[in-house]
Amino acid sequence: MKTRNFFPLMLTLPVVIFLLALLIYPLLYTFTIAFYDESSESFAPFSLNVFNTLITDKRFWGNVFHTASLTFFSTSITFILGILLAYCLDQIKFGKSIFLIILISPLAIMPVVSGLTWRTMFNPLYGILNSILKYFGFEGVEWVTDTSSALFWITIVDIWQWTPFCFLLIYAGLKTIPVDVRESASLDGINSFKELIYISLPMLFNLLLITLIFRFMEAFKTFDSIMVITQGGPGNSTETMIIRAYFTGFRWYKPEITSMIGIFILIFTILCTRWAGTKIGEQENI
């Protein structure tokens, strides 16, 4: 008779415990806070009150819209810019290290610090941006203190901050493509642009997908720059889901609303990244 071997189980036990403590328990607790009904006396005090308050709240749909628009534009533009910059840097012959340092510097600055810098630059009275405009004879602009333009400029800051991230990953990817592939392409008379579209990028498909997922999730939970520059204002024009969650949870002491927003964010993120996950899975099976 075979004795059972518990050794593999013992090896995985620490991981399982940590997962339970750090991921599963907080997740379940979030659900409890969001759906628990204090006033109910039934055996399962489950209630959709918070859910209903939130989905009937116009302001919440505003938050969703701001989050979606920031995420979409920031992700796509940083991604495309990242590819272009990486490709350009890969092509040039000299000064690579200097350009590399300049290009990744936004990533090295703490978001709060760069947020404060941008906030000062955006200042309509003393900021450098309006000073430059006025020097050339233009009217000053309100930048982030007008409801119609605030989210646009927040998106620009986010793009500035995160383009280096996409650029760096994709540049590293381009470096892994064997030289002979490109050499043979050029011998066959394909120009550089076609080479990028038909050879380099398809070869980097998995890397690009992972870059996109990371960038997407990062953009989805953009917090520091918004918090420092506008705090969600003016009006509610830059209030994203994560900013709303912060205010309701830590300023107004309403953990149930924060938990519900957290659940929404979780569901959105899972839905949006599922497609990418499946794609990567397919690649592995080949």
Binding site: N123, P124, T145
Partner: peptide, 9 residues
């Protein structure tokens, strides 16, 4: 509205 631009900050 008579304040300097950026009054909402």
């Amino acid at each position: 509205q008579q304040a300097p631009p950026g009054v909402t900050n």
